[in-house]
Amino acid sequence: MTAEAQPARSVPVYDSKDRRPAFIEEVIGLVRYRDLISQLISRNIRTRYKRSVLGIGWTMLNPLLTMAVMALVFSQVFGATADYYPVYLLAGLIFWNFFAQTTTAIMNELIWGGSLLSRIYVPRTVFAVSAAGTGVVNLVLAHIALVPIMIFVGSPITPALLFIPIPVLFIASFALGIGLFLSTLSLRFGDVIDMYAVLLTAWLYLTPIIYPIEILPESAHWLIRLNPMYHLVESFRQPIVEGHLAPLESIAIAAITSLVVLLGGAWFFARKGDEIAYRV
């Protein structure tokens, strides 16, 4: 017996001809590379605060302090129109920031990851999925920071809070879908990143996040309801601010849009995915 005797491992065989649909291939790849995803998430979180004294504490402090400033300013303006306005604002902004940061991060990750994708084989959505995962971790931490404020302001703490993971799942899929779509576009057009930044600002002010929907005339409410972000925010915020679930209609719209956007974005990315290795 020589030491050379091969262990009975299965020999992976690659054949460029037998190709499963890109979508299924990607899902199988993600499962196989799950360790990479968790490593990328922990890398993102650790490197962000690597040289700071407070370290990961900033993940909680940063949104808290910015939002405390905004709460102070806007409480004067909208304070009378919404119950527990500081909690209303903070919950809305935590949610919005997750969306804005995650979609932008997905685009930037592809630029970093893209140079790797043209050298070694890795499922191409790995970087987008880990950017979304990083966002979820930050969202959870920021959310923990919200609890003392809820107690301080005296907003109701009820079992409805247990529903929170569901809208988080919705917004994560929504952000992933939009992020995949945008990063595919940005491969081709350099101006997507800048255009998107402008669009994000407009979107933020068109959604009742800083202001309550009640300050708008009744006749304009139908317009706001066309905005899927409104339903996503509401299904997250109502359990926190008002202590009960959002109307079923909002939850259903949030669920359906996030699923459609995720599938649409993933399909677009998979279809154009081969261009990554050609272009980046």
């Binding site: 690659y14 054949d15 460029s16 050298r119 084989y121 290795a277």
Partner: peptide, 18 residues
């Protein structure tokens, strides 16, 4: 890139074992 599985050939076939 074709051998590293990063690029799929436009036409033709690549097979790798292991």
């Amino acid at each position: 890139k074709v051998i590293a599985r990063v690029l799929r050939p436009t036409t033709g076939r690549v097979r790798l074992r292991g």
